[in-house]
Amino acid sequence: MLILECPYCGVKAEETELSPGYEAHLKRFGPGSSDTEFEDYMFARKNPKGVHFERWRHVYGCGKWFLAARDTATLEVFGTYAAQSSAPPAALQDKIKAKRPDWKGYK
């Protein structure tokens, strides 16, 4: 059972205090987008074995959504950060690169 530190309130929350929100950094496509764009937005998920960026909500806590970088195979947590981020913080990306040299980036 995971522990993720909520970047808003600092609580090291266990999984039962959180609710998952699946892949992070998706770009929303609304009216006017192509079928392919919309399909990617709705359905195409990376589901990687390895480094993954996810949304979590501290639902039994401060109620805020945050983002987490995690290895889906080893469950190592590289870091958590605010949901109001269009890309993972540079320092976090450096940390992941150092730990996982084969990592291709978050996009």
């Binding site: 309130c9 609580v11 039962t16 205090e17 639902v59 039994y60 806590g61 401060c62």
Partner: peptide, 8 residues
Amino acid sequence: RTRAAQVA
């Protein structure tokens, strides 16, 4: 803020 058993 947390949960007690099944509630906030």
